[in-house]
Amino acid sequence: MTTTLLAAEELNPLAPHPIEIIVGLIAFLLLFWLLKRTVFPQFEKVYAERVDKIEGGIKRAEEAQEEAYVLRQQYEDQLAGLRAEAARIRDDARAEGQQIKAELRAQAEEEAERIRQRGHEQIAAAREQVARQLRAEIGGISVQLAERLVGRELSAETRRTETIDAFLAELDELAERRETAPAAGGAS
């Protein structure tokens, strides 16, 4: 630097200082170069990663939503199928139940009929047995009565009546005995 330049500098604030230009340019360009090589790529990398992450996240969310939609569709289809199946089973069961009920009723009626039938038969048999017995006994009794009537004089009206009454009483007694006998002795 010459003295004239120095003097000019002192007067004019617009005059540059050469050393500042040199040092300033070197310092700035060096700073720019270093930052461009070391620091700024890191920033850009982080930005890119962040953008990627956000966009990737959105994409993944969309995929998940799609998947969920498909699953829901499947699930609803399945559910509809199951509902139809259940309804069908219920209908079947109802029909079957009705059938079973009808069958049971028929069976019960049949059974009841059979029981009634048997009752009728037993009653008929019992009546026949009684009739047979009675017939035999009445025969015997008639013979006895006839013997008694014949054995006594059949003159007096009163005697005849007396005899018949006595016979009847005897018969009553007999019947009473017959009634109690099976309960007590068991023999008939």
């Binding site: 617009l14 005059a15 500042e20 230009i21 300033g24 340019l25 700035f28």
Partner: peptide, 15 residues
Amino acid sequence: PTFSHPGVPYALAGL
């Protein structure tokens, strides 16, 4: 303020 000297502003503007 460094740039109250005009040298570096000139240089940067030239750049």
